[in-house]
């Protein structure tokens, strides 16, 4: 089980990084998502994978067959946050596409490096 999960994490991270090196920004953002899922799975595996009992602590102590529930709670938090950030990244991407007509990493960097625009003459809206 551990081997399988480790390999999956490795594959997800590799795919994520490979996609992030792409020219297209959409693939970069999707790469971040894939990478994020790889990381989530890695965190999840920190709490033992073969839990076969519910993690309820009784008077007698924690059940021996239970997995540690804390990493699961952590991953739940991370998934929610990751989803929100992904949606924001998509919104930014959509807006860039509307403004530029295409979304390429080189173009985005070039636009961000453009000289600062001068303010319009006074009287116009700043």
């Amino acid at each position: 089980m551990e081997i399988l999960v480790s390999l999956t994490v490795g594959a997800l991270v590799a795919i994520g990084i490979w996609m992030m090196l792409d020219r297209g920004l959409l693939r970069v953002v999707l790469g971040v998502v894939v990478l994020g899922n790889g990381v989530n799975l890695a965190v999840f595996s920190a709490g033992r994978l073969d839990g076969r009992a519910a993690a309820f602590v009784t008077e007698a102590g924690a059940p021996a067959l239970a997995a540690n529930p804390l990493p699961q709670a952590l991953v739940l938090t991370a998934i929610v946050i990751g989803f929100a950030l992904f949606v924001f990244a998509l919104a930014v991407l959509k807006r860039s596409w509307e403004l530029h007509g295409r979304v390429e990493t080189d173009l985005v960097t070039a636009v961000a490096e453009e000289p600062a625009p001068d303010l319009p003459p006074q009287g116009d809206k700043a």
Binding site: N40, A42, A89, V111
Partner: peptide, 28 residues
């Protein structure tokens, strides 16, 4: 211009935060 700067900022900060999350999981 602002949107383009934001794209750079968002992507790199997301990657850094993921590294942090992975490290927190490993540490635990």
């Amino acid at each position: 211009r602002r949107l383009s700067g934001t794209v750079v900022y968002v992507v790199l900060n997301l990657v850094a935060t993921m590294m942090f999350l992975l490290a927190a999981g490993m540490l635990y």
